[in-house]
Amino acid sequence: MSDSLLSIRDLSITYHTQGRAVPAVRRVSLDIEKGGSLGLAGESGCGKSTLANSILRLLPAGTEVTGHITLDGKDVLGLTPGGLRAVRWTAGAIVFQGALHALNPVQTVGDQIAEPMSLHRTVADDDAAKVRVVELLRRVGLPAARAESFPHELSGGQRQRVLIAMALACDPQLLIADEPTTALDLMVQAQVLALLEDLKEERDLTLLFITHDLSVLTYACERLAVMYAGRIVEEGPAWEVFENGSHPYTRALAAAFPTIGDEGSRMAPSGLGGDPPTPGDLPGGCPFHPRCPLAHDACLPAEPELRVSGEARRAACVLV
């Protein structure tokens, strides 16, 4: 594990709202090696975005965080504000979902891309920043003239490209992409995924990719981690996990994205009964048992821990 760029150990994150403790992430450990890519899958409320935001300490004040996050050899949770600023953007940068509100509506796209560069003084002066902005825009597939545009003048796909350009501004090693393709059409989604893949190759980026769409992750990442109710319930090589999940939840999620041409799923949509649990009110035992098609008595006494379920694979299910 010495060549991990990002290493998370026993991370727990609890929100405190209206006097209630809401555990969003519970004892999560994971690693991404330098140049690797990990896809984090899960449904709304499973804690995946909280986990992503915690890596750059972007959580709201008053949130309780325990455990360890090591990014590029630095203990993120123990950093001083100055050290934290250095880590943000330069060691790791985050690409948000390309909705309109992710960008400042009254600032040109070029100024917004230049902002982190001048904040972190990675460029000599304004002229150098302009040159770099044009370079970045070209790299993400936008014409240089777009630097003068305002966010509302761009399409969803173009905004997503701008957000990627922003994240690349300070040459980060880790790129965290939080649902970067969710609001996009199929073709534009493919364009953005191809761009991320090219960038990863070209700059030796490490990628943490978060979405609810398991099939996108499988396509874009080497490894896959599936979260449910604040915990990782399965982890392993992407295609193996997608096609042959060990955890019943993984299998259900994978089945939600049918393989076209597969006779088994033709006219047979497959899903789970019930709803994802709310973080403040988790069922006892294995939190998945109320929705699990294979649940039995052994699921009730305690929450199963991750255990080895194959080569380089782990899953948290009593049946493994």
Partner: peptide
């Protein structure tokens, strides 16, 4: 809708 819910709604429609 969440991915795991999707199939149930589609199954209902079918």
């Amino acid at each position: 809708l969440d991915a795991s819910i999707r199939g149930e709604i589609l199954a209902l429609m079918r």
